[in-house]
Amino acid sequence: MSTLIAIAVDGAIHGAWLFLVAVGLTLVFGVMKILNIAHGNLYAIGAYAAATALGYWFASHPPSAAALAIQVGAALAAGLVLGLLLEVAVLRHLHGRDEVSVALATYALLLILDDVMLMIWGTDPQSAAAPYLLLGASRIAGMRFNNYEFLVMGLAILVGLLIWWVLTRTGTGRRLTAVIHDREMAAAMGINVRAVHVATFVAGACLAALGGAFTAPMIPVAPGIGAEIIVVTFAVVVIGGMGSIPGAAVGALVVGLARAAAVHLYPPAEVFIVYAVMAGVLCFRPNGLFPQAAVRRI
């Protein structure tokens, strides 16, 4: 029983963290039909920005709840600046291009951002452990869990509910849905599709940076973390269905539970369990668990 509880809690925590990163990727693909391979580096820059800001703050201040505000502020600032810069400078010129050209362009952005991070932060790992230690720990069924991990879970739930509310309860969400299903008709009805694309990409960049900022206290922030996360995030999005927000949530939970089960029951399987789950899902659901509805033109 204790093993099952550990798998459930660890899987939910890991799934929540994956959802924070994956939801921005699937949102951008759903609206803009762009698979942003550089999404992982937006996550990494969010982590670096948060680690740097926390390092400056705690160099002269005692640990406090201000750390959470610093993380959010650093993530939003990094996501806003980079999202606007990349969309206006690069991605706006790729609309209407074939998927291979877009994928190659975003892969080039990944390589460029890798070098930018090396120029700014170098190769030494950055540490931002203060928020992780600040909240203490709790025991569940005799097992110790850090409360910061539950904070990340709560943040993922909050982000998911906020996106659901925007998409289903606001005029912005209705315009976004119209662009998702038929951008030509949406433009004919007076919706500014260009503004929707810019806002969507900036939102996706901010979500990626937010995931990185709240991951920074849990890991050493070092070169390569962007490439590591994009592979797993891509698996989550493919399992859930490209462009589906509910799919991203379910896919993240499935991957989180599968990984936790492997870690607790058979650790060598952790290396390939994510890809085994993805392959198994795609065998029966080639478009993922919650594929986007295709527009039927007549």
Rank of each mutant, 00 (worst) to 15 (best):
M1H: 10
D10L: 12
G11N: 05
H14P: 00
V21N: 02
A22T: 06
V31Y: 06
N36M: 07
I37H: 10
A38M: 05
G46F: 11
A50G: 12
G55F: 08
W57G: 06
F58S: 02
A65M: 15
L68E: 03
V72F: 13
V72K: 01
A74Y: 02
A75K: 06
L76E: 08
A77T: 13
L80K: 08
G83F: 11
E87F: 09
V90I: 15
H93I: 03
L94Y: 04
A105G: 02
L110E: 02
I112D: 00
I112A: 07
L118S: 01
G122M: 10
T123V: 14
L133E: 13
A137Q: 14
A137N: 14
I140L: 15
E149F: 14
G154P: 13
L155N: 10
A156K: 06
V159N: 01
G160P: 03
G160L: 06
L162R: 04
I163M: 01
I163V: 10
R169L: 03
R169N: 03
T172M: 09
T172W: 09
R175I: 01
L176K: 00
I180F: 01
E184T: 07
E184I: 05
A187D: 05
A187E: 07
A188V: 02
M189T: 04
M189F: 02
A195C: 00
A205R: 04
T215P: 00
T215K: 05
A222T: 11
P223H: 12
I225D: 06
I225E: 08
T233V: 13
I245Q: 09
V250G: 01
R259M: 12
L265H: 10
Y266A: 15
V271C: 04
I273R: 12
V274I: 15
M278P: 03
G280P: 11
G280N: 13
C283F: 15
R285M: 07
L289H: 03
R296M: 08
R297K: 15
